[in-house]
Write a protein that binds this DNA or RNA. Sequence first.
DNA 1: ATGACGTATCGGTGGTGGCCGAAGTGTCGC
DNA 2: GCGACACTTCGGCCACCACCGATACGTCAT
Lengths: 280, 280
Amino acid sequence: MTSAKRTSERAPAAAPERAEPRGWDPGRRAAAGTASARPGPPVAPDHSHELSRLAALLADRTRAAFCLALLDGRAWTAGELAAYARVAPSTASEHLSRLIDGGLLVERRQGRHRYVQLAGPRVAELLESVTAHLDPPATAPRGLRAATASAALARGRTCYDHLAGRLGVALTDAMAVRGLLDQDGGFALTDTGREWFEGALGIPSDALRAGRRPQARGCLDWTERRQHLAGTAGARLCERLLERRWIRRIGTGRAVRLTPEGTTALRELLGLDEEAAGLV
Amino acid sequence: MTSAKRTSERAPAAAPERAEPRGWDPGRRAAAGTASARPGPPVAPDHSHELSRLAALLADRTRAAFCLALLDGRAWTAGELAAYARVAPSTASEHLSRLIDGGLLVERRQGRHRYVQLAGPRVAELLESVTAHLDPPATAPRGLRAATASAALARGRTCYDHLAGRLGVALTDAMAVRGLLDQDGGFALTDTGREWFEGALGIPSDALRAGRRPQARGCLDWTERRQHLAGTAGARLCERLLERRWIRRIGTGRAVRLTPEGTTALRELLGLDEEAAGLV
DNA sequence: ATGACGTATCGGTGGTGGCCGAAGTGTCGC
DNA sequence: GCGACACTTCGGCCACCACCGATACGTCAT
């Protein structure tokens, strides 16, 4: 009973005053050494509850797989995700509800389908930054089909709403060489960079400042282990390249490839060499 | 038994081929609708397992509290953390072992003490970026002592190895105004910024490029909801200000305050106005 | 030595949650 | 209308794990 009572009183009571510096239970803690307690005030607002709640959403294998799949930026149906993660539809449904409640996903009901999608660029950034901290450098693909598919993905792909893979990195590097992007001191579009977006791509500076989202961000690539351009600039760039048919999606996946027109255009605009960038 | 068998065969078998596009169990999935399965190859390397493993480390309230407390960049003993999170020492010990195994923390045993610390700037960045995605704008402090302590923290504090709070934001803004930092196009130190570090602070450019860590990074502040300077530049800056006694720690906590010498020095160097910045 | 203290290990307990199948609800097509 | 289909809800099962107290093991002080 003792243990039952303690756990039951802990769970609810812990919420408001868990990490409060004052208000320790001296009776219980005294035996364990109150003297060792840090005197100064700990971290002010207690975010531990929210942090753990958020982390718990990703702490399940199936939900994590869902989120990573959705990192392609498109909407998936519940059934597709269930098949992808190899769980029963009922299980997938429950997971999706939790992810939506948690604010990571949004849904759009359409007929008998339930389309889900990442809730926005912020969520994509969150997932990117967390996955960027996973050490292991990826596993080699098995089988011919998987190998070619994975090679295509390594060449170029979309990462939520911008370009990644060797293509994304090559574009980023070319922009840095031309002085459009500052990669030395951090990650930022230069003045000439903004002019280039306007002049070369017809993207005005206004279109680059969308709310709180940063104009330029570095996004770590899991195939290249290098940064590529993300943020509004990265999104607009990808958008425009698709529009002008300089890149094209391969099949229905997230892999993209450079078209012949794109090759010449990007060579002109950025001095991008398709072969040197490893895009052939 | 069916369910027992499935779960037991799922756990180990899932690891290598969970998210494989091919190799589905047609018999089982067929009934649930294989036709809806996305044709193209899903995300190439399956990171879902590692992602969920990492997230699980933070998915517990107590462990999350540990990590947030350790965000002050200093080493805590196991007992201190136990008292802080109000759990039994045995419980804290187990959590610490898990966090260390997971690579988030490192330990330094010293006599009968076990000091733990964040494993490095990368872990600090990870925690920052995750906590930055927590919506609620913090709760108001209760009580006078808590209020003054929290006010001091809001004025200025360390955030792992750099400065945060109004002080951190004000410094960042002042640097941006002076053209030392580019906040418009992203977040990067400019050429003049690097010169300033060398000339005004005596920090050579070499000291700013330490391995893979970015020179300048934006770190979102939970009190200000604004970005402040992080990365090697932020760390060196904080270090140097402490060295020159322009700022000083308040008590043993992570709060810092501007000294009189610091006030004049920063007014000269950056045009920083203590009052306008809300530091009084 | 001895006792105090910080921490680790172990066994046990209860709660949480992921999973499934079966049954139910709504939508589409015939 | 009628099935087919996508999804949801429910009940039940099982595994995991956070927690504690008791005990054990080091280290430090006396």
